[in-house]
Amino acid sequence: MSNQQQVEKFMEMAGKVGAETVKLVDLQSVAGYIASQVSGQTLVPSTFLAEKHGLARLLSSSGVNVFKGDFRGADHVPAAGVTFSNFALADTGTIVLESTAEDIRLATTLPEKHFILVDPATILKDNLAAAAPMNVFHAGNDPVFVAYITGPSRTADIERVLTIGCHGPRELHILLVDGISDDMMEN
């Protein structure tokens, strides 16, 4: 599969599990997109890529209410969280996010909506292909927390009826932007 096909497959599969997928040209349009979707408190963890690309600043200047301070002091259900990702899996529409830093975990588990940026160059074929980068995450003995995210939170526990948004985000927006970082160890 060419990368182009892999990107198509990824978008198709992510769409099937209820994620929104959007291709955007740059970080500026990312900020614009997010600003059009949220009005409340937005958690933007300060990660390597967020700093590199000045994400929080871009969002603020587009009018997004970027939360400042300790994330544990934010609302129990903040309006949104915005993060980068490490890589993605085409065949299941999954995003992989190394989330050892607590802020990343809070920004992806608590909010109503999760916006996640993906560089199409990091889309792998399937979860078997994820074994190699997963092993790199686990090199050494440091504590690690890695999240695979496939669509929004869901449940079928009442009468087996699929219902979106049980404990995690009710919406997952995947924003594909070229050239963010093709290094799968960065987020």
Binding site: N127, Y148, T150, P152
Partner: peptide, 11 residues
């Protein structure tokens, strides 16, 4: 194909 979340935690 996959559940919404697969969470890997060490330490």
């Amino acid at each position: 194909l996959l559940t919404s979340y697969i969470t890997w935690i060490r330490g």
